[in-house]
């Protein structure tokens, strides 16, 4: 591979219904899934799927979901995405249908459910923040 300095990164938003189609297109083109993770910002989830476009370029696909949306799992297209999806389910409480085989759906085995979710408003003056709220 040639040396590519400061490779380009692009970001794109995709609806949860079109996610599987987009991921299948990437797999058909032979692109590698780098990582997948969840964030909790202003009371909704944002899932980011990072793909390597070859020559070290990066494309990030952002999926916005709220607490009750069921996001489809990409583990049958990319089998090694299972640990990333397990992490998003266990630490954030995102609803993804991860397959049960392999990692048994309890990869981290922590005592609390969705401990990373905390409705903290990023005001400059606000100082209080609650611990996790009662989610499902």
């Amino acid at each position: 591979m040639n040396k590519v300095y400061d490779p380009v990164q692009t970001n794109r938003n995709v609806e949860p219904e079109n996610l599987i189609e987009e991921v299948r297109k990437k797999r058909a083109d032979g692109k590698r899934l780098l990582q997948m993770f969840a964030s909790y910002i202003e009371k909704h989830y944002e899932l980011v799927y990072c793909f390597d476009e070859g020559d070290y370029r990066l494309e990030n696909i952002h999926v916005v979901a709220d607490r009750s949306t069921v996001v489809p799992s990409v583990s049958d297209i990319y089998p090694y995405a299972a640990p990333y999806e397990n992490e998003a389910c266990e630490l954030f409480g995102v609803k993804i249908n991860v397959p049960m085989d392999g990692y048994r759906h309890r990869l981290y085995k922590i005592a609390e459910d969705a401990p990373y979710v905390s409705p903290y408003d990023h005001d400059e003056d606000s100082e209080e923040h609650e611990e996790e709220e009662d989610g499902e």
């Binding site: 630490l91 392999g102 990692y103 048994r104 309890r106 990869l107 981290y108 085995k109 922590i110 401990p115 990373y116 905390s118």
Partner: peptide, 14 residues
């Protein structure tokens, strides 16, 4: 082989 991790989990990103 079935791995399970979580013994060193501190939760830094929170």
């Amino acid at each position: 082989a079935i791995p399970s991790i979580g013994f060193v989990h501190r939760g830094l990103e929170s």
